[in-house]
Simulated assay, not measured.
Amino acid sequence: MSTANAGMLFVFGFFFLIAAIVIASMFVWATTKKAQASAAREANYRELAEKAGMDSAEIKASLIEVKSRLVSVERMLKEVG
């Protein structure tokens, strides 16, 4: 193998190594971004679930209040009638 061929082989090998590093870096970067987006989406779902739980508790309290008022009205109607 001549010196020119060895030099050319070294340059191609070097460029191949650089390309492999760049491709691997891009893959790691894309995976990281995907994981960050997934974490943000899960946080949003968790927040939405907490709000739904609070809303459910408020609705339950309102229904209990309405029920007690209805019982009171029924009692008044029975007393009048």
Rank of each mutant, 00 (worst) to 15 (best):
M1F: 12
S2T: 09
A4G: 05
A4E: 11
A4D: 11
N5M: 07
A6Y: 08
A6L: 11
L9S: 14
V11H: 03
V11P: 06
F12S: 10
F12G: 02
G13A: 02
G13P: 02
I18L: 14
I18Q: 08
A19T: 15
A19V: 12
A20P: 02
I21P: 02
I21S: 06
V22S: 14
I23A: 10
A24W: 15
M26Y: 14
W29M: 09
W29Y: 14
W29A: 09
A35Y: 07
A35M: 07
A35K: 08
Q36N: 04
Q36R: 03
Q36L: 05
A37P: 00
A37E: 06
S38K: 15
A40S: 00
E42K: 07
N44L: 14
R46K: 10
E47H: 01
E47A: 08
L48N: 08
L48G: 09
A49K: 04
K51A: 11
A52Q: 12
A52K: 12
A57P: 00
A57D: 08
I59R: 09
K60A: 06
L63V: 12
L63C: 09
E65P: 03
V66C: 05
R69A: 03
L70D: 00
L70A: 01
S72Q: 02
S72P: 01
V73E: 02
V73A: 05
R75D: 03
R75Y: 07
M76A: 14
L77D: 00
K78H: 06
